[in-house]
Each structure stands twice: as C-alpha cells, then as structure tokens.
Design a protein around this nucleic acid. Sequence first.
RNA 1: GUCCGGUUAGCUCAGCUGGUAGAGCGCUACAUUGACAUUGUAGAGGUCACAAGUUCAAGUCUUGUACCGGACACCA
Length: 738
Amino acid sequence: MKEKQTGIPEVFLKPYNPAEHEDKLYQMWEESGFFNPDVCVEKGVTAADAEPFSIVLPPPNVTGTLHMGHASMLAIEDILVRYNRMQGKRTLWLPGTDSAAVATQEKVEKELYKKEKLTRYDLGREALIERIIAFSEESKSTIIGQTKKMGSSLDWSRYAYTLDDERYHAVMTAFVRMYEAGLIYRGARIVNWDPKMQTTISDDEIDYVEQTDPFYYFKYGPFTIGTVRPETKFGDKYVVMHPDDDRYKEYEHGQTIEVEWINGPITATIIKDEAADPEMGTGVMTITPWHSAVDFEIAQRHGLSQEQIIDERGILLPIAGEFAGQHIKKARAAIVEKMQAKGLVEKVDEKYVHNVATNSRGGGMIEPQIKEQWFVDVNKEFTMGPSEVPGVHEGDSVSLKQLMQKAVSGGGTTIFPDRFNKTYYHWIDNLRDWCISRQIWYGHRIPVWYKDGEMKVQIESPGDGWEQDPDTLDTWFSSGLWTFSTLGWPNETTDLKTYHPTTVLETGYDIIFFWVARMILMSTFLVGQVPFKNVYLHGLVRDEKGKKMSKSLGNIIDPLDMIEKFGADATRLSLIVGAAPGNDMPLSEDKVRAYKKFANKLWNISRFTLDNILDADFTAEATFSERDQEILQTLSDTVTEVSSDIEKFNLYLAAEKAYHYVWHDLADKVLEESKPILNGEDAAARYARQYVLKECLVTSLKLLHPFMPYVTEAIWQELPTELKDQEMIMVAAWPKQD
RNA sequence: GUCCGGUUAGCUCAGCUGGUAGAGCGCUACAUUGACAUUGUAGAGGUCACAAGUUCAAGUCUUGUACCGGACACCA
C-alpha cells in the first residue's frame, strides 16, 4: 500500500466511491468462505459448540428480477445474519430460488404462442417442461447476481432450488407420508377453476375484482329470485329460504312445486337452510351446486343432486337446451332475451356492483366447478408422532388446524409484530381443506399411479402399465417444506439437527397465509418441530407518496439503479430506517442519497481518526480525563442500545441510533473537541484521547457493519493490523457490552 | 359485515411500561475550505383528528365519533 507523508492510506484522499469497492469486497468475502458456518468453525472464527442462528431466504422467483421488496428483505435478513455472526453464533443464511410454477409456465406459454403460435398441447408435456427449465436456468443467474449486489452474506454452497432433486425427493416423501396418515385424500369437491389457464387454484390465489353488471330478478313459480348469472340457472331445481323467514311460512321443507323455467316446466323442491339471508333481495334463492361454493355446501348438507352446466372451457352443456355449445359470455344476453319473451323477467337492476373472483396469477375469471382433486384435510384428527411442538405431545390426537394453532399459541413461534397473531388465528378458523392438485405441467408431479382402476401412492413407478397422475402439486405445498427440505430432510442430516427449527423467518405480511401458515402446517406434522422460532413480517415498500410501486404508475425505484448511484450501503440503510416491522414504508431517491452522504461521512471520520492515531503509542502512560471516560461510556451505552434493538427486531431504531451516534455525537462533538487535545502539549492527555478515538472508530465500524457492510469493510481493510481482532470485519467480534 | 392499522412540524415519520412534544428532509440566518464533491451552529414552524372518561398528571390508558388505509368473509 502506497502511503503519503501523513501516513494515511491514499485511498482516503478521495470521497468514498461505493462502485470502486463493492464488487471486490463481495468477492473477497465469498472467497474467504466465511458465509459458510462450517468454514467459520474450521478456521476458528466460530466455536464448534456455538449457539446456531439460521434463516432461510424466502426464495425469489427464478425468472424474476430484483425489486425493492427483495432489497428490503435482503437488507433486513443480512443485518440479522451479520450481527449474529459477529456475536460468535454458528450462523447460516441459506439461499434458494423458487420455480413459481404457475407464473413461470404461463410466461413460457405466452412466449411460445407469441413467437411460434404454438400452445402447450401442440408441444407436449416433455418438450414444454424442457423449455421451461431452459428458461429458468437462464434467468436464474440474473436474480442470484442481483442478490449478491446487495451485499447478502448468503451461504451459496447450500443453494437450493425448489425443483432440484433433493427438494423433489422431499416433496414426494411429504406427499406419501401425509397420504399414509390419511391427511391427503382425493375427492370430488368444488374448486376454483380457471377456464383460461385450465387449472384449479387455491382460495388464497383468488383476487376479487369489483365489477358492475346487470342484476336480474326472475319469476320462479310463486317466488322471485335474483342473479347476475342467468347462464348458470338451467338446472336450478331447488329453491332455498331461511327456516325462520315468516314470509314463506306456508312452504315446507321438501315440498315440491311446478314452475315454468327457461327451457320449460320443472319440478322445484323447497329447501329451508340458514345460508339463505332473509335481508338479501327477496330472501329466496335457487342454487347451482356445481358452480358455486356456497350452493355446493347447501347441497351437501341436504344431500341434493348436482349437475354440471358449464364445461371446463366455459361452454354450456346439453342441459342448456338450445343454448348448448355457446360460450357463457355470449349466451347470457340471449338467455335473458328468451326469458323476457316468456315473461319471466320481473325487473333488471343495471348498476349492480359486485366482486368477481379472478385468478391473481393470470387474471382469468374463476368458474367454480366440481372436480376430482387432491386435498389436504385440515380437520381430520391423527395421532401425533415425536413432537417438540409446545403443548403437543407424542400420541396426542390432533388435527392439522390444531397443530397450526398450537405452534403459535404455545409460544413455539413468535410473530412480530404481534398484531398479526390475530390475522393468523382468524385465517386458520376460516380454513377449509386445501386443494393441492394443479392441472399445469411444470412442477412436482403427484406421486400417484393408476392401472386398471387400481391406485398406488408411492414415489417410484410401480412398474409397466402404471400411469402417473397427470396433475402437479400446488407450489405452496413444496414451499411449505422449505425450512427443512433445504436442510436435507427427509434424511437426518447434521444440518437439520443443527439449524432446525430456524431462528427467524423474515417475509412480507402479504404472504402470511400462503407461506408462513403452510410452513407451520408441514413442519409440525412432518418434522414435529415448528419451522422457525420467530416470524418477522416486514411491510411493503412504497413510493414517497405512499403509493404502491408499479410499472403502470411509473413510480418504480429500481434497487440496482440505487446501488449504482449511491451504493448498496446507502440503499440498505434507506430501506431500514423508518421501516417499523409490519408497516409499509415510503422510499424516495432523496432518502437513499442522504445515506450515501453518511457513508462518506464515516469514510472521513476514519480518515481523520487514522490521521491522528497512526503514530500513537498505546502502551505509553496516559491520563484519562473525566470526559474521556464519559466518551467511552456513551460509546458503550450505544452498543448496548443498538444490540438490544437488533435483538428485539427493532432494526429501524438500531440503525437510527447508530447513525445518530456516529454523526452527531462522535463526529460533531467528540472529534471537534479532540482537535485541541491532539495538537496540544499534554502528551499524557493526548495518548488518552488517541486511545479513546481508536476505540470509538473500531467500535463504530463494528456497530455499523451489519447495516453498511461494504464501507465498513473497506475501511477495516485499511486499518493497521494491530487495531483489528480479525482480518475481515465480517467475522470480527461484536463489541462487548456492559 | 368481521377484524387490524393509521390520523403528531410544510413533507415522511419516531415517540417503548402516562410526567406539559422529537428526528430526517425542506425553510431562515450566521459561520466554516475544514477530516467532509461541504459541514457546523442557531432559529422559525405543532390547541399531538374530534369528544368524553380514568388520573395529581394523557400523543401516551378506556370508551365513543369522524375520516384514511389494509386483511378476511359474503355477494343468490
């Protein structure tokens, strides 16, 4: 290293330029192997029996690119990881990517159609999957590269992909075990069918979109019924009313009446059921069990017959008579016209506002259908195996629902912020059996085999002539295994024993149901442990006006742009300060810019300090003034506060305190008042102050390292060896607390 | 409809277990070429949404009201 006359490294003579250092530093970290806890133990940085600390990275979509949501997730997790690594814990942060099957297949299919005018059926299952894999592989490196840019200290040697061989094996094993325990069943049930993508989707994947449609009142014998969807009404032969509705006292449950209907007279049966809301319209409705979840439930309760009206593509079936073969969208007007002609239309409310179920992953309008699907039974009681779940013991009779409740209520998993506990319990209370089969091709294929009406559930094909179920599993089925499938399960690996349950799961509050709850379900049943001891839910990153970032609004702030302009450290800090757990956070470019200044400030603090202590003799006789003691005390208090805030997951407070201390205490006060002492005649006082400044610098760098890993490491690399306890600050010891 | 948040300086937000308001940005004035492609010092600016209650004392606790946001359910 070339040095100037003053003795400080030349690099400090220019302002801190992140672009010059970041990639080099990341490479240095990666090559050191310290991202891998085993290497830390090997090289004596971490004690072999140290307490473990583990986080699995919520895997981003392989085909995606890094957005601010990812950036904030990476910043939060990296802070926790770096802090705990410096605390001497055996720290693992495990990376992975997600196949996001539905979204990925859709993307590839769209491309395929656009470029080659081919559908998936033209191409066939094998060929399509090949294309999807090629596409995923290609885009995988993009998201991984971008993840590294943020400074994420992930252990890449343990990288997992949701569709790789180990995960495949875990998923198959999970399915078979759950089937054998009687928790997975096949049944004809009402599902959310997307006619556009030709697949079922789960309740959670539905988006309700507000829409205005005409609402029709039809004469149905002596009754008036209302509907938005006349095209589903052909087979309606049950008329339902509330048992306590006095207006219809004269009718009895089970009584039949003749009514004139769309295609001629039919025999209607009166059903009294509490699902009918007396306040709603006339209080009377007819039901279509095949195409409505509520109607299906009513039909189940009373053992009513069910008939399909609309096929999988949205075409009317023969029951529609003259309308058969028409698409429902086109048929509606014609049906109403005919009913009008028959005098069955009483009135029409043209401006009826209601919510329409659509597929959140592709926008297709959902048509409920009764289909043979695979389900996870959440209410069935089974005998619990070996259990570390609080409040649940081996041999207890429990249901998956109860397991999910107890994991949290027993304190096995703590949710931050705690108001989400209610949300979590509320969701479980409303939880119905989980439909896990999907009619898409890319994903984990269901390990069920058929031959001559016989069925076998096992991972390998039973032999010649056995046909595998064509369906694949819901992506959240495999995601639910993520905390342990990434650690080697179903094998009893050392990793699994060491790092599971993981310490923290950090994710957005928007996927608490999709993912958090499912992980708890899978882990408690399959491993007998909670998947994580803590859940930290972060908010959504919004623009400076609090609006959601979206392409159409043109208000997207690209994290990679920010890194290029202001550095990864500034980007990280801007995403942390002011971001209380679970609260949405506004972000502006100005905010990022402000933290770039801070990185430079730290750079200059270091330069000034080094300039004044490089010639210091720390062994010389020194007299510590009261003020010296006070400065050291403040420093130590800051360490205590920052540490405790990190432990409590209050990163926004920790970051702000560290920032405030370094800039407005250390720089503004301590450094300023030290100038006369450092230039003064009193050698003993000078030595003392030099020692104090050295402590302040080294400790501040460590304090800030989890938040700003690059600039602190860049400075650390320039410090004289005798000031350092480790060559890299990323594995240096966290400052001692009183 | 049920549940959960929010309402504090021009803007974005802190304010943890109750003791007469804080930060950043912005604004004004002054200082400084310094360790600092600047920074420092000082200042202006708030009946803490509204109402009632508990208390010696209430942004802080309780209840209610209004508005904003979100989640879930329902939508025949």
